[in-house]
């Protein structure tokens, strides 16, 4: 088990290097260091000397990938790419191009992201599973048919509409919660209610349908028929047998997204003015802050790989038949 995990972690390294190279190339095809300097120094009265100075200060005055002026190994190491990458692997994200400590910013902005993502996940899970169980219970009746239709209808509405409509209705017309913003501590609740509800509603369509399929698959198995034949009531069958056995795919599905919750939601966060990691990334793209973009991509990849690993491990935990080799 431990050997397996170790091997997986080792396997992650080339992937992270690949991610790093790709981001780097993509970003510098688009942005020259000069562009970045100009962006950060402002629009008015920028002299070439100031640009040179800015680049030198942040180490962007070196060649991108290969330094011709150096000998041997230094030709590779004395480059923007190498210098900036090494630290990343030590999880030292450094200072953003606008002079902020990225690690600190990430650690601060992580919490608002989680404050939305975790309730959305949990409430969503609860609502979707309940609803799906209900549908499974009433399978092949009018409730089933219309619920599935409702799910498809809900899936077909753009997420943007939920946000725009929800904000307009709940905040503007009904005055129930603030339109946007965020606060720390308990007072954050009133800012989080709407985004969480919208997040849950937006996910009901696809989520419920997915769980419904899971449950129906289980319901048609032999052991369920046996249980029913024993005279157990339908509710007991559903809760004790079907739900329990469907838990495996549900759990593994949840585990894989767990680490990614940290990354936040791009659209929701910027619509509701929540200072999470999603809006952090968007801002960084718009401001061309390479340091942040790289840090976030790196973090995203690490979390993704972590999610895959966790899924594999959780398989063994819930299902002893699966052996990790």
């Amino acid at each position: 088990m431990i050997a397996y995990i170790l091997r997986r972690i080792l396997y992650a390294i080339p992937i992270l290097i690949g991610v790093n190279v790709l981001t780097f190339v993509l970003f510098f095809v688009v942005n020259s260091p000069d562009d970045m300097a100009r962006m950060h120094l402002g629009m008015k009265r920028v002299t070439p000397e100031a640009i040179q100075g800015w680049k030198a200060e942040r180490g962007y005055d070196k060649p991108l990938l290969l330094n011709d002026s150096r000998e041997g190994l230094e030709a590779l190491t004395d480059t923007i790419f190498f210098q900036k990458s090494v630290k990343l692997f030590q999880f030292d994200f450094g200072i953003s191009d606008s002079d902020r400590d990225i690690g600190y910013d990430i650690s601060q902005r992580m919490w608002p992201s989680l404050a939305i993502a975790v309730p959305v996940l949990l409430v969503g899970l609860l609502v979707n599973i309940t609803y799906a169980l209900l549908i499974a219970f009433f399978r092949a009746t009018y409730i089933d048919i219309w619920s599935v239709v409702l799910c498809v209808v809900m899936m077909s509405i753009s997420g943007l509409f939920y946000i725009i409509g929800g904000q307009y209705l709940v905040s503007k017309l009904l005055h129930l919660v603030p339109i946007s913003g965020y606060d720390t501590g308990v007072s954050a609740i009133k800012f989080l209610v709407l985004p969480v509800i919208i997040g849950v509603i937006g996910g009901i369509g696809s989520g419920t349908r997915w769980y419904r399929t899971l449950f129906l698959e289980e319901i048609n198995r032999d052991y369920v028929r046996t249980a029913r034949a024993k005279g157990l009531s339908e509710a007991v069958v559903l809760f004790r047998h079907v739900l329990k056995n469907a838990m495996i795919p549900i759990l593994t599905g949840v585990v894989v997204v767990l680490p990614l919750l940290f990354m936040g939601s791009l659209i929701t966060e910027s619509f509701f003015g929540i200072p999470g990691l999603g809006s952090y990334t968007i801002d960084a793209i718009n401001r061309q802050d390479f340091a942040i973009v790289r840090a976030m991509v790196f973090l995203g990849s690490v979390l993704y790989i972590l999610g895959l690993l966790l899924t594999d491990i959780s398989y063994t935990l819930v299902d002893p038949r699966v052996r990790l080799s």
């Binding site: 402002g42 629009m43 339109i179 946007s180 913003g181 619509f271 003015g273």
Partner: peptide, 30 residues
């Protein structure tokens, strides 16, 4: 001063009385 990136929330909050003035800036040339 609250961070408000979107135009809609800013305008609506102003109408609801939560901003004293609807911030129209003169920094717009950039």
């Amino acid at each position: 001063y609250s961070l408000e990136k979107e135009v809609i929330p800013r305008w609506n909050k102003f109408l609801q009385g939560y901003y004293d003035t609807s911030g129209v800036s003169s920094d717009s040339f950039d």
